[in-house]
Design a protein around this nucleic acid. Structure first.
Length: 907
RNA sequence: GGGCAGCUAGCUCAGUUGGUUAGAGCGUUGCGUUCACAUCGCAGAGGUCACAGGUUCGAAUCCUGUGCUGCCCACCA
């Protein structure tokens, strides 16, 4: 069968993909005689569209899973999406706002219905795009974090953690996003440097005698929070404030009396050394309030406007209030100065609004007990990070882990499985009933009276029988469902064959941004709920950036859309390009032109295949390669290309096992293009109809396609389908073919070295031709002077090869003197002469040779010093010394010959 | 404040556990269209491996320090 003249990816990709899918190749079932290999997708969120980060991430996973599938593993790649609570709610809210509808007017239930509708319509965009990328995910198993099964897992986990005393409700300073109007976890608050101001403000000292203008100066970046001040803190060692003891200060404007407290926490060097204490709006101050028994005054509403405790400023936005307060302080003569101050401030990771630290009643997970086994799992090497340096990042975070705020004041998500009995909530604390699903009474001072922790809504209060129950209005952090992904997707909490077979999974491929959000928490969840690690390897790939090093983002407009690139260059080109430039653990700097690499390679593969298939005679090729190899007499190029194939194959397998995807891709590229196409195919042309050529061309092509398939699935499939059938080449899809077996008896270092020597010889002859402007059609005569019998034999065996590739009419070799007027080139032990009667320009030749000789002399000098050094010869490995001695001997001959040549042309 | 990366050819980057003459792609120079491929072929030019010390027979590679660049973490208001 012949291939069309040009490869058109768009014509075949969709067809090939749907065929794979319809034949069920992506699906894996637990099969006992196969070893499992499973990976789970880092679930993209349903508001997402495919970006380059996804393209890189999923190409890597697809390479792994296709590789393992071909190797015969029960290869399962579990796909799915997460519900992205805040992000999705924001998207739907914005959509409704366009129609003039507000979330709160719609009501909770109707709003959630709207989100589901939106999800049904748009939530699978990313899935379709992953299919465009060629991902061989097991779509039959596609999961969503809000699916029934996964939701069940979430509730189960909440109740279990509660029963274990690891979930509590408490009043703490949390990160509050005033725009999304919800609490955020520490990880969801991203620190960014902002240029702010440091304001110096006088706080008057209350003087019983009255009238004297004494004050303490404090420095603050958020003057508006002074409305919630309850004290001034200074360091006990600070001499400046020694005599403040027993004094009282007055809060400007509100005129509240403030205590002075002494605490070593206060940094004497910062600002004035006096710290205003605002327990409801700052974590440090909150800590001080607990320690010193101070009141906590929250002065803000949910939208960060000032509340009724803020006096005249009520209703103002926090930044408005800041300005107004500064103005008022100026009027009263209490404002000293403001100076520019750059500092890190938390921002909402979804909407980038400045986070307001704020006292709030939220649900938390106690993390320390969960972290301990997760630390151990990584320390002991049961879980390995690639590259290894992420281990330290992980451990540092884990060892300093803080409790996880899991409640969100939004509507889209898993609702917290806690119900409050209206009647019981009026009972005194000692009578309160807190009943979990397991029936064990629990107690928690903050959880509220009459609370019932239950996976399903109870009919009535177990204590008083009242049916007036209200569910907690909050939903759980999206990551509270994602952290269960590796087992909830396989059916947990129900035991299943899938779970038993595929868990723990093998490798997790993800981006560094997500180590804390997701990777660390999955490890904790896996160990807590399955008593086993969720995966063995964590491969962290780099961030995709544009060519200036900026992270790609829609708002910056520097995005290179993978779907555009697929449209322009084809999926395989996209995949191969991005993989070949992604070094393990390094960020990827992308520009559109980089995709040409993959496109050109695809083109090369196509044309080489087309050429081979045009010339193949199906009756010649139906042999087993091993049988053929034993029976046939092979030429050096034939032995060489087989050796190179299997060397490459071994290297590629090793690289994939070590997550060195770019090295694998580049090894294949080098082999296919620069060895197979550039040399072997050129060599084989004159004898292409012979049996040996036929078999070897066919086998190399066929095995190269299989080796390449994980990287470039579509083009390899398209060619495979048109390939003549033979032993080992069935009509079935290439994706279910076995990974080629390494025939190590065909790997020969000597053959590879010999061929390398011939290639060097041919290259140098071509070089002489180029230098002397000999037209390609003109055949020259060449004389090669050789003293080494082995090299002479090598040349004798391959004389036709050299003659044809170097376009030589007349080749003499052996012990020959230099012919008159010839150009010279020295290659290893060979002295190559090209007679150029009348053509030779001695000045030009002189320059060339002098330069060459100087290079040789320099090398000789350094070699001699090294070899004369006793330390070197005695300490270096024998191999190295031998090699260098060989090189020296060769170099000595070369220099001798070179100087003879130089003498001859009068130097 | 703590930590992590990067600095190699004009550009973008590889460089295995230290060991011959440091590589690729793009760009560039010369030649080439007799039919697999111009998304191509052949040949070339181009590098003090950021800097300074150190370890070693030997350093792009290991150690220390410096300088830029980028990233992550962090309760100096």
């Amino acid at each position: 069968m012949e291939l069309p003249k040009a490869y058109n990816p768009h014509e075949v990709e969709d067809k090939i993909y749907s065929e794979w899918e319809s034949k069920g190749y992506f699906h894996a079932e637990p099969i006992l005689d196969k070893n499992p290999y499973s990976i789970v997708i880092p679930p993209p969120n349903i508001t997402g569209i495919l970006h380059m980060g996804h393209a890189l991430n999923n190409t890597i996973q697809d390479i792994l899973i296709r590789f393992k599938r071909m190797q015969g593993f029960g290869a399962e790649w579990m796909p799915g999406t997460d519900h992205a609570g805040i992000a999705t709610q924001n998207v739907v809210e914005r959509r409704l706002a366009k129609e003039g509808i507000k979330r709160h007017n719609l009501g909770r239930e109707k709003f959630v219905d709207e989100v589901w509708k939106w999800r049904d319509e748009y939530g699978s965009t990313i899935i379709r795009q992953l299919k465009k990328l060629g991902c061989s995910c097991d779509w039959q198993r596609t999961r969503f974090t809000m699916d029934e099964g996964l939701s069940e897992a979430v509730l189960e986990v909440f109740v279990r953690l509660y029963d274990k005393g690891l979930i509590y409700k408490g009043n703490y300073i949390i990160n509050w996003c005033p725009r999304c109007q919800t609490a955020l976890s520490d990880e969801e608050s991203q620190h960014k440097d902002v240029d702010g101001m440091l304001y110096h403000i006088k706080y008057p000292i209350k003087d019983p005698s009255g009238g004297v203008d004494k004050h303490v100066v404090i420095a603050t970046t958020r003057p508006e929070t002074m409305l919630g001040d309850v004290a001034i803190a200074v360091n006990p060692k600070d001499d400046r404030y020694k005599d403040l003891k027993n004094k009282t200060l007055v809060l400007p404007i509100l005129n509240r009396e403030l205590k002075i407290i002494y605490d070593g926490l206060v940094d004497m060097k910062f600002g004035t050394g006096a710290l205003k204490v605002t327990p409801a709006h700052d974590p440090v101050d909150f800590g001080l309030s607990l320690k010193h028994g101070l009141e906590q005054i929250n002065v803000m509403n949910d939208d960060a406007t000032i509340n009724s405790l803020g006096g005249d400023y009520e209703g103002m936005d926090r930044f408005e209030a800041r300005e107004a307060i500064i103005e008022d302080l100026k009027e009263r003569g209490l404002f000293i100065k403001s100076e520019p101050h750059r500092h890190a401030v938390g921002h909402c990771y979804r909407c980038h609004t400045m986070v307001e630290p704020r006292l709030s009643l939220q649900w938390f997970v106690k993390m320390k007990p969960l972290a301990q086994p997760a630390i151990e799992a990584v320390r002991s090497g049961k879980i390995k990070f690639y590259p290894e340096r992420w281990t330290k990042v992980y451990l540092d975070w884990m060892e300093n882990i803080r409790d996880w705020c899991i409640s969100r004041q939004i509507w889209w998500g898993h609702r917290i499985p806690v119900y409050y009995c209206k009647k019981c909530s009026s009972l005194r604390p000692k009578d309160q009933i807190l009943r979990s699903a397991s029936g064990l009474p629990q107690n928690d001072g903050n959880i509220g009276l009459g609370a019932i922790i239950s996976k399903s809504r109870p009919d009535k209060c177990p204590k008083c029988g009242s049916t007036e129950l209200e569910q907690d209005p909050d939903v759980l952090d999206t990551w509270f469902s994602s952290w269960l992904w590796p087992f909830s997707t396989f059916g947990w909490p129900k035991e299943s064959k899938d779970l038993e077979y595929f868990y723990p999974t093998d490798s997790l491929v993800t981006a560094q941004e997500i180590i804390f959000f997701w990777v660390a928490r999955m490890i904790m969840a896996g160990l807590e709920f399955r008593h086993d690690i969720p995966f063995k390897n964590v491969y962290i790939h780099g961030t995709v950036r544009d060519i200036t090093g900026t992270k790609m983002s829609k708002s910056l407009g520097n995005v290179i859309d993978p779907l555009d690139m697929i449209q322009k260059y084809g999926t395989d080109a996209l995949r191969f390009s991005i993989i070949s430039i992604t070094t393990q653990g390094q960020d990827v700097f992308l520009s559109e032109s980089k995709f040409e690499l993959g496109r050109n390679f695809a083109n090369k593969i196509w044309n080489a295949s087309r050429f081979i298939m045009m010339n193949l005679k199906p009756e010649e090729i139906s042999v087993d390669l091993c049988v053929f190899y034993k029976g046939a007499k092979l030429t050096l190029p034939e032995k060489w290309i087989l050796s190179r194939l299997y060397s490459t194959l071994g290297y590629v397998g090793k690289c994939l096992d070590e997550f060195k995807f770019n090295e694998a891709a580049n090894a294949i590229y080098e082999f296919v293009w620069h060895e197979f196409c550039d040399w072997y195919i050129e060599i084989v042309k004159p004898t292409i109809n012979e049996k040996n050529s036929q078999v070897i061309l066919y086998k190399i092509l066929e095995k190269s396609l299989r080796m390449l398939h994980p990287f470039m699935p579509f083009i390899t499939e398209e060619i495979w389908q048109k390939l003549p059938r033979s032993k080992g080449v069935t009509g079935e899809s290439i994706m279910v073919q076995p990974w080629p077996h390494i025939q190590s008896e065909m790997i020969s270092k000597k053959d590879e070295d010999d061929m390398k020597r011939l290639i060097e010889l041919i290259t140098s002859i071509r070089n002489m031709r180029a230098v002397w402007n000999i037209e390609p059609r003109t055949k020259t005569s060449v004389v090669i002077n050789i003293h080494d019998s082995e090299v002479e034999k090598l040349l004798a065996d391959n004389v036709d090869l050299v003659k044809s590739l170097a376009r030589i009419a007349d080749l003499k070799y052996g012990a020959h003197p230099k012919p008159e007027s010839s150009a010279v080139s020295i290659v290893g032990n060979m002295e190559v002469y090209m007679p150029l009667e009348g053509l030779i320009d001695f000045e030009k030749e002189k320059l060339r040779l002098v330069k060459e000789e100087a290079r040789m002399q320099a090398e000789m000098k350094s070699l001699t010093t090294r070899l004369n050094d006793n330390n070197f010869t005695s300490r270096a490995p024998r191999e190295v010394v031998e090699k260098q001695e060989e090189r020296k001997a060769e170099l000595a001959i070369q220099i001798k010959k070179m100087s003879e040549n130089l003498k001859e042309i009068g130097v």
